[in-house]
Amino acid sequence: MAGLKEIRNRIASVKSTRQITQAMKMVAAAKLRKNQDRILRLRPYANKMATIMASIRKGLEHDLEIPLMQARDPEKVLIILFTSNRGLCGSFNTNAINEALHVATSVYGEQWKKKQVRFFAIGKRGADFLKQKGYPLVGSEIEIYDRLSFQAVSELEEKFVQMFLSGEYDRIDFVYNRFKNAAVHLLTHETFLPVSEPAEEPSSPLSPKEERHIATDYIFEPDKDTLLEDLVPKNLRIQFFKAILDSFTAEHGARMTAMHQATDNANELIRELTLHYNKARQAAITKEILDIVGGAEALR
C-alpha cells in the first residue's frame, strides 16, 4: 500500500487535471453552439438553391455541357482530408485519416498502384500525419479555421476548381466528419468534382407543395443554360463551405464528448483514491493504537 502522502499528492494532481478537462469541455461547448448556429443559418440558403436548381432543370431536355460536370476517366485523383488543428478530441482525426487512406488504397486502388492519388489536408492534424508517414501530400491549409468566412473558403474552393478544370486532377473527393449532433458525427466520403447530375436532387423527399412549386411556369432570365452555368459553381461553393463548417463543428462536438469522458474518469479516479486514502489512514491509526496498547501491556 502506497504511503499516505503519495496518495494525497495523487488526489491533488488528478483534481487539477479534472479542472483542466472541465474547462476545455466548457470552451468546446461554447464553440460548438456558435458553429452550430452557422450551419443552421446556411441551411435555408442551401435548400433554396436546391429547389431553384430543380425548377430550372425541370423541362430541360438536353444534357448540360458544363466543364465542371465533365466526367473523365479518373486517372489522377485528389483526396481532400478535413481534420482539426488541435488534438484532444477523441478518435475524430484518427477516423478521418484512416478513412482517407482506405479510400486511397481500396476505392482508388488502381490509381494508387500507379501513384496517381494525391492528398490535400485541411487541418494540421491530417497534414502532420501524412507528411510524417511520407504519403503524397500536395498541400495543406491550416489557417482557414481562424477566419472561417464564406469569402475565405470560396477562395480556397476556387483553387480546387481550377485544378479540376486545368486537368491536373480528374476527380476530387472529400473525406470529412459530417456534423449530426454534439455526440454524433458521421464519417463521410463524397465526390466533389466532377459535379454529378442526379446528386443535385434535394436530400429529403419533396412535399406536394414543393413539388408544385418546382413545376411552376417561370420566366427565366437569362436562359436556363446560362442560369445553370452560373448556379453550378455557386452550388459547389456552398457544398465546400458546408463540408468545412460540418467538420469544424463536429470537431468541437467530439472534443466536448472527449473532455466530458475525461472529467468523468477523473471523478471516478478521485473516488477510488479517496477510498484508498481513508483505508490507509484507518490502518495507520489502528496500528498506532495496537502499538500503544501493546506497550502498556508490556509495562504491567
Binding site: 411552376t216 420566366i219 427565366f220 442560369l227
Partner: peptide, 9 residues
C-alpha cells in the same frame, strides 16, 4: 405585387 413567377440571376 402579383409579378409573374421569375427566376433571374
Amino acid at each position: 405585387h402579383n409579378h409573374a413567377p421569375i427566376i433571374s440571376s
